[in-house]
Design a protein around this nucleic acid. Structure first.
Lengths: 268, 268
DNA sequence: CGGTTACTTGACCATTCTCAACGCCGGTGG
DNA sequence: CCACCGGCGTTGAGAATGGTCAAGTAACCG
């Protein structure tokens, strides 16, 4: 059984002093019903959010009125980080289901970098993980067909829900409307509908209302064209945490690519 | 005139001790001709890279053999960060033009978080900025037509090149092949070709070989459907750097969204 | 020069979109 | 309790954006 803290411990951090920080975050909880804005694009950036329970989507608006859902957040995710680099929020955060989350003020975040380097490093790695996820989604949308995209998306949801302990017997609750799925994948709701039925008719999944059961994970994975990345756990953290004072045994360590004779190496 | 350090100073950092760290990075330079791999997907993650000169692309491969270029890197960019969260590299880094870059070992990066919090914070914010860029690209690819995507992409390149001091008289060198542009935007090279000529015929841009001149920035911006985010400069940094010991005047500070009477607030 | 790579253009094709209609279900008010 | 309503899902028919295939041309490089 996992908790909503699984995203914070995935890189193997949380020293005792870090725990105190996290419990300070979770001291103030907020709840919202479904289909409410947590924060609109253009709003002032005063905090980020730690999602304890429920589904939240983060979306970007286009001038044409169309929207792109850039991330479906599940319990344990941190919300609103990208906007830290912007003058005003760039993404709209909306609840998909009833949700519980903890606001974390930007000033509290900054303290981390000065006083809790291990936790800061973990958040940094977690942000890199989100970048990988965005790269994956971009590759689905840019380079695969509707059925391939949908398969990849459903698998991704399945795996992330499993990590949060929300999958039982290969089945999970999928609260997204078909229009929302379309806005994630760059498809219309009509085409999502048709494509879903194809996936069902192939015997890969089963739908009962909004309950979704994966019948043939292998078949789904075959349809999904992406090469799923393997996330580093503690190793990702350890890679960064070389003990102080160790002398670099540089040599070719970062130069595997330079096996080509025409490559030049200058400086040093 | 800017330098390739503009991406490091954009959030207003670089204390004297940080400068020493950066100059250590740039002590070892590597050069590669165009069309070479810096690092292939699947390779061990030993370092990240600081791009001093030239264009580099980072791409994700699909099992179908198609690729998605997830980022076109320009001088001043940091390369390879997302893979820090992975067991083995998830993105292939390839030079588009002759390029000069500095490998930074992961261990050196980790030191930052313990000993150079200001610089670490800057890298953190820079990563958030890259997330925003990915979100934007995803919104182009997922929710706009070919000509809209192309306009947004050309504008983005223009603005980023301008920030690096590489635009003169609204014109810049565009070393990408049309196939590569297609792999960025999720289009075929054939369609990129046709779409480019439409943009030219509308009098928005001019092409002379691989030199591209923006004739009508306003027209381009109108075609591009995205609401361009405004990046926070030093303010982004200051938001995080609340002086220690200041008591939170919490109140409604993170609760604008809860104006709805049906919202509940628990805990505290 | 010869060969390769990139660009250009045309004709045809298909995936996906648009528009429209209908049914189902849950909620709400009479 | 029933009638109504809105949101969501489903299905069909036709249109369109962009893909595929193919051939020819221009630019570049040894």
């Amino acid at each position: 059984m996992r908790t909503s803290f699984h995203r914070l411990t995935e890189f193997g951090l949380l020293e005792p002093s870090d725990l105190a920080v996290v419990s300070k975050w979770t001291a103030r909880k907020r709840q919202l019903p479904r289909n409410r804005e947590i924060r609109r694009a253009g709003a002032e950036v005063k905090c980020v959010y730690f999602l304890l329970d429920g589904w939240v989507m983060s979306s970007v608006l286009l001038r044409s009125g169309r929207r792109q859902i850039v991330k479906v957040h599940l319990p344990g995710d941190m919300l609103g980080f990208p906007s830290l680099a912007l003058e005003t929020a760039g993404e709209t955060l909306e609840t998909i289901t009833d949700a519980t989350f903890c606001p974390i003020e930007t000033g509290d975040l900054g303290d981390l970098f000065r006083h809790h380097p291990a936790l800061a490093t973990g958040l940094f790695l977690s942000s890199q993980k989100e970048r990988v996820a965005l790269m994956q989604e971009l590759s689905w949308v840019g380079a695969t067909s509707a059925i391939e995209r949908l398969s990849a998306f459903l698998l991704d949801l399945h795996d992330r829900l499993a990590a949060a302990g929300l999958v039982e017997d290969q089945a999970f609750h999928l609260p997204l409307t078909q229009e929302q799925i379309g806005d994630v994948l760059g498809l219309t709701s009509v085409h999502v509908n048709r494509t879903l039925r194809v996936v069902v008719s192939k015997g890969l999944i089963e739908r009962r209302g909004r309950q979704l059961k994966v019948l043939d994970p292998g078949g789904l994975r075959q349809l999904a064209q992406n090469i799923a990345p393997t996330y580093a756990g503690k190793e990702g953290y350890l890679r960064l945490m070389r003990p102080d004072g160790v002398v670099r045994a540089t040599g070719q360590s970062c130069s595997e690519a330079s096996s080509n004779p025409s490559d030049l190496s200058i400086g040093g």
